[in-house]
Simulated scan of single mutants.
Amino acid sequence: MSTAPRRDDSDRDRDRDAEGRARNQRPRDGLGRPLPHGAEGVARQPEGVVRTPGQSLAEAQELLDAGRPFHAHEVFEDAWKSGPGAERALWQGLAQLAVGLTHAARGNPTGGARLLRRGTAAITAWTAESGLDRPYGIRVPELKAWAEALAGRLEREAAPVEAAAEAPRLRASTPG
């Protein structure tokens, strides 16, 4: 039996939120990758924000259009955590699509394709169960076609994509 001393991390400085949970406060780039402390990153999305579905979709669309799908994923994550339980799979699927685009832009085509397909499956299952094919004006059929096409291209070409150029349209129009 090994008697090697255990490392005591209790005095390590860690970024923590108000509840004491560890949070990485390092700055991040536009694709959500951590940068060194002190580097200039992009503004992060605040966590735990309760938005209406329309606000979530509008904010996520702005982030997608700006080439920041990781940050759009955080908006969708807030929606699934704060919204009705019956809609959880819809918002999780949208978050997976955003993370799939993030991985594709970071140069991980395998992970990107996998998450795009997982997100497509989630929104497909949710729409079938709910009987709604355009909840909150979300262009679900077009979004599924976009994700399937991008996943197929990632599997064939295995090359990074430009996130802003590949951003999907979530709704037919975004109300002001």
Rank of each mutant, 00 (worst) to 15 (best):
A66L: 00
Q55N: 02
A128M: 07
T124S: 14
R139D: 15
E59K: 09
I123E: 04
H103A: 07
T110R: 15
A121Y: 00
W91M: 11
E59Y: 05
A89F: 08
P36S: 12
L35I: 07
R21Q: 14
H73L: 10
L64W: 05
A18E: 15
T124Q: 14
Q25N: 12
E129D: 15
T110L: 13
A86P: 07
G20F: 04
I123C: 05
S130I: 04
D13G: 07
S10L: 14
G119S: 05
E129F: 02
D11I: 13
T52P: 08
A104Y: 01
A105F: 01
P34W: 02
K81C: 00
K81T: 04
D133G: 04
L101V: 06
E142N: 12
A58M: 01
R23L: 13
G137N: 08
Q92G: 03
A39Q: 13
Q25S: 11
E129T: 12
G32M: 03
L132R: 12
G119V: 01
Q61G: 03
G83N: 08
L97D: 01
G131A: 09
D29V: 11
R14M: 14
S56H: 12
Q92W: 06
A86H: 10
G112S: 12
T127G: 06
A121I: 00
T120C: 10
A121H: 08
P109T: 09
R88E: 14
E87N: 04
T110Q: 13
Q55A: 14
P34V: 03
D11Q: 14
I138Y: 06
N24Q: 12
R16C: 02
A121F: 02
Y136N: 12
N24S: 14
W80E: 13
S10A: 15
A39M: 09
R16M: 07
N24L: 08
L132M: 09
L64E: 00
Q61K: 01
A86D: 14
L31Q: 01
E142G: 14
R134Q: 15
Y136R: 11
G48A: 04
G30L: 12
A60I: 03
G41R: 00
S10I: 10
R14A: 14
S10M: 08
R33I: 02
P34T: 04
